[in-house]
Design a protein around this nucleic acid. Structure first.
Lengths: 201, 201
DNA sequence: AGTATTACTGTAATTATATACAGTATGTTA
DNA sequence: TAACATACTGTATATAATTACAGTAATACT
């Protein structure tokens, strides 16, 4: 997918906002009026260029037959199992995507991670829950973090974070703390947990 | 807003599903083809009838100029505190609304209810969580329900449901079961809990 | 019995729309 | 330097689409 020129972006944005306003795409004349073209053919040729670059599909013969091609990055990915050795957000880990939800969780979420195991039940995080994760390096002691220890991804509370020792706490009395020496084990923080979703019944 | 006839509903549904498929509304000819009309005017007259009843707006002169009129519900309501004496979904109870497009839970949700108190912590439902509620009379023992007892709204697990006794269980060992005799106390089930949202951090 | 509503067919006119073809001009790539 | 992409104007035309007008027929309401 090639990059659009400034003008082409402008036209694509116009199409999107027109659809937002009216519920259907603009005609070539509509576009030309809004952008001040004196010929509808200017719009036509822009549309063809945008189609060629893969951002829209023009349905031949149909009036207003402009179909927006969905961008891949639409919606927040839901991660099921994380395959060892790769990044969390690798395509193979993405179960599905759910529409952006800024209004739902107050902080912005980069992805949802499906919880495996019962290590966090004491703070109400259960198996199969989806936790909303925000990718950030700015993690604090006391917050629930997504950590990767030697390629294994885990969700725990960050109890202690210093240069010579990191302690991750499972919120379940049956589990004991995980103590990590960062110079021995490979430790990465993938993000902080900012919300939770659960499907009941 | 008058009621639509069966045929008119069929046409309105067709319009909605067509928009879902293509991203723009159908023409009169499109509608006629799908429903087997031999004259596009059949569609035209149905559209006028549907417009007259307030479900769509026809933009004169524009091709595919059918605008769906949104029903007043602009999203799933979030209920904070329920004022005594009124219905849960009364305007005064609605904190905000979450757009349908952002529905993250698999089952359909009629509203979200903000949890007050700690009576359900043992199954991971905490104060300030939002539970997704589905309005239904079809409730089962064992499921988490939203009940109204003498005008007070509460969230509990339905433990026993028979004609002479209803038992609601708080999922917190510090609380005891609520036993209700339906012939003495007024009991209504507002719905079942189908999901949960939590904002962390 | 008369009027209105629903649910269509059939024809036709007007206008809305897509789209081809012929240009002009500028800047970028091979 | 030729070929190509971008960014338009201007004209023209086929066809897509709306929409008016004239009917038919069944059912409901007053």
């Amino acid at each position: 997918m090639k990059n659009l020129t400034e003008r082409q972006k402008e036209i694509l944005d116009l199409i999107k906002s027109y659809i937002g306003d009216f519920g259907f795409p603009p005609t070539r004349v509509d576009i030309s009026k809004k952008l001040g073209f004196k010929s509808a053919n200017a719009a036509e040729q822009h549309l063809r260029a945008i189609e060629k670059k893969g951002f829209i599909k023009i349905l031949s013969g149909a009036s207003r037959g402009i179909v927006l091609i969905e961008e891949e990055e639409k919606g927040i990915p839901v991660i099921g199992l994380v395959a060892a050795g790769g990044p969390i957000l690798a395509q193979e880990n993405i179960e599905k995507r759910i529409p952006y939800s800024q209004n739902l969780l107050t902080e912005s979420v980069d992805y949802y991670l499906r919880v495996k195991g019962d290590s966090m039940v004491d703070i109400g995080i259960y198996e199969e829950d989806l936790i909303g994760v925000r990718k950030t390096k700015d993690i604090k002691e006391g917050s629930v973090v997504v950590a990767r220890i030697n390629d294994e991804v885990t969700v725990k509370t960050l109890k202690k974070f210093s240069s010579d020792e990191v302690v991750l706490k499972a919120e379940n009395e049956n589990y004991s703390d995980i103590k990590i020496n960062p110079s021995v084990d490979e430790l990465n923080f993938e993000g902080t947990c900012v919300g939770l979703l659960r499907n009941l019944s």
